[in-house]
């Protein structure tokens, strides 16, 4: 039952990601991206990362997707019948669709091969973690663990993230301000 749910989520995630990548309609692509992120949050739950899953839904689905919709609506006058003039233009990376597909397929095959060769299920530190009962069993209170670790072991990255967020807040407000008032 759990496995079935996991594989359904996995299939939806991968298929919707592929649709996002090839879809011509920008608004539809963003809404399908929403589905990808939602199913990905479900997959995080299967890895016992409840808190990360909720954070994903709040930050990505609640924030980033809405921001992207704003970006598309403010920067595209013909939202529904947008221009398709694919000819006679240089691309950012001067690769056509076939070349890009071949490149990503090569990366995909290489990574899959690497994962099979690495034999991750038999890594030493994973076996040690299993034998010393350090793995999640599903009965832990992961938000509590994360809270304690944030204030002890990972305090420096936490503070760095807060300074970074302040810098981003100032930078984004500065970039988006109205120029030449009056």
């Amino acid at each position: 039952m759990l496995k079935t749910a996991f594989y359904i989520l996995a299939v939806i995630t991968v298929l919707s990601a592929m649709y996002v990548v090839v879809c011509k309609n920008l608004a539809r692509a963003v809404f399908v991206f929403f589905a990808t992120l939602f199913c990905l949050a479900g997959i995080y739950v299967f890895a016992f990362a409840d808190f990360v899953a909720i954070t994903q839904i709040m930050v990505y689905v609640g924030g980033i997707v809405v921001l992207m919709l704003f970006g598309i609506m403010l920067s595209n006058r013909q939202l529904l019948n947008f221009l398709v003039d694919e000819k006679n233009e240089t691309r950012f990376f001067s690769l056509n669709k076939t070349g890009a597909f071949l490149l990503s397929a090569t990366v995909f095959i290489g990574l899959i091969r690497m994962i099979t060769m690495a034999n991750v299920a038999n890594l030493k530190w994973l076996k040690d973690a299993v034998s010393s009962q350090q793995y999640y069993t599903g009965f832990e209170n992961s938000p509590q663990i994360i809270g304690v670790q944030t204030m002890t072991n990972y305090l420096l990255p936490f503070e760095a993230a807060s300074v970074y967020l302040l810098a981003v807040l100032i930078g984004a407000a500065y970039l988006a301000r109205k120029k030449k008032i009056g």
Binding site: V20, V21, R91, S104, V107, L111
Partner: peptide, 16 residues
């Protein structure tokens, strides 16, 4: 891996 390669394809081909 599949998600990463989808993202790579989007970065290489999309014009928006």
């Amino acid at each position: 891996t599949a998600l990463f390669c989808c993202g790579l394809f989007a970065v290489l081909t999309r014009r928006n």
